Simulated scan of single mutants.
Amino acid sequence: MTRTPPRLTTLVLMTALSVLTLNMFLPALPAMGESFGVSEAVMGLAISGYMACAAVFQMSLGALSDRIGRRPVLLGVLALYVVTSLVCLSAQSIEVFLVARAVQAVAVAGGVLSSAVVRDLYDGRMAAAKLGTIATAMAIAPMLAPILGGFLDAWFGWRAIFAAYTIFGLAAFVLIWADLGETKQRDPARQAGRVTALLKEPVFWAYTCVLGFSVGAFFTFLTGAPFVASQVFGLSSDQIGLVLGSITLGYMLGAGISARTVERVGAMPLILVGRGLPLVSLVAALAVFLAGFGTLWVLFAATMTVGFGNGLTVANANAGALAVRPEMAGTAAGLAGAFVLVTGAVLAGLTTMVLSAQATPARLILLMVAAVAVSMAAALLARRWSKALPAN
């Protein structure tokens, strides 16, 4: 069994699998609803239910990896992922599909534990820079995933997407087995006290709220955009995939700038710019739509700034949360990731509810404005409370 630290590309692919599992099937949601004979609200459970279950998995798997190590947890997760992908592929009822889809949420362990591995190996701004590099590279996944999912649905049907998940899971298992050496120094005896100390740190929760509501704005977009794009702008599933994928160009640019500049300028200035820019652009876009001049391009120009802002924010806020208690990196990553997904599940459910009544661009933008505004408030609190932390 390998004992060496993993290559950076392995950490990228670990993270990418969780993103692929979340959003590659989104362009096929309308076709899946027709196939199972259910409403948009029921199909929305494939997103909100997935994220709620992923939150539970993140809390338990992150803490488990602090006790027994990163490698065995990831190998077990990937084996389960392959099985559940096969069940989704062959499901004949919406109940079976939704249960398997919920368990498929174990894929989120890839993102959580890649962050923990980075924190095992690096400190301070170097950890933020490495996380930013991973974010830049893996941004290709959310950009290409909806495009690939849209074309698979258009040419082969939605089940082909879950066949692709199965193949990805098998390939990831082989990669982790060959390359991911154990990076965690185990010390389970003091873990309970450390968890309690982590939970009492207000700066940890401030950074976690930055993460939760920054990514939550993106989840709101991913959930609502397919319905707005099809009902208001008349786009097909493959066109929706192209539109959803385009927003991550902004994320890739922001993450690339962050990775190159964080060691020089620090994380907090990047976080604040990453929160302020999308807030201003979304408010401006909302005003344009309310005035009756909105177009598809206005909507997606504004939402691309959400991607850019998240690129500046997410890796740095994640590094800040993990730096509070470095010896509990797995638990901290799991708790922060769980909060992100609970927030995302709530916002996705709210988005489905609001847009099921009437799918309009203004409603979608207003929901995103609210999420970004909360993340900005949390960033200001994190700045106030984190002055004593290293590499901030």
Rank of each mutant, 00 (worst) to 15 (best):
S65L: 14
F293I: 02
N316A: 06
T220H: 01
A178W: 03
V77D: 12
G309A: 04
Q104L: 14
I176Y: 00
L312V: 01
M24F: 04
G256A: 00
V96S: 15
A345C: 00
S65C: 10
V38P: 14
Y165D: 08
F204M: 14
G254A: 03
M143S: 07
L199T: 10
E40I: 02
F233N: 00
P326F: 10
A154M: 01
Y165W: 10
F233L: 05
A135E: 08
F233R: 06
Y207K: 00
P361H: 00
C209M: 15
A338M: 14
M328Y: 07
L20E: 07
S114M: 05
L152H: 10
Q58C: 03
S93H: 10
L235Y: 10
A137W: 04
M268C: 03
R260N: 06
A323V: 05
T183L: 04
A379M: 05
V298W: 06
S281C: 13
V288I: 15
A129Q: 13
L78I: 04
G49H: 11
R159G: 09
T360V: 14
V273W: 15
P188F: 02
A329V: 03
L364M: 11
M51H: 03
L249I: 13
P269M: 08
G33T: 03
A302F: 02
E201L: 14
K130N: 02
T136C: 10
T313V: 14
S356Y: 07
L389P: 04
L355Q: 07
G334Q: 15
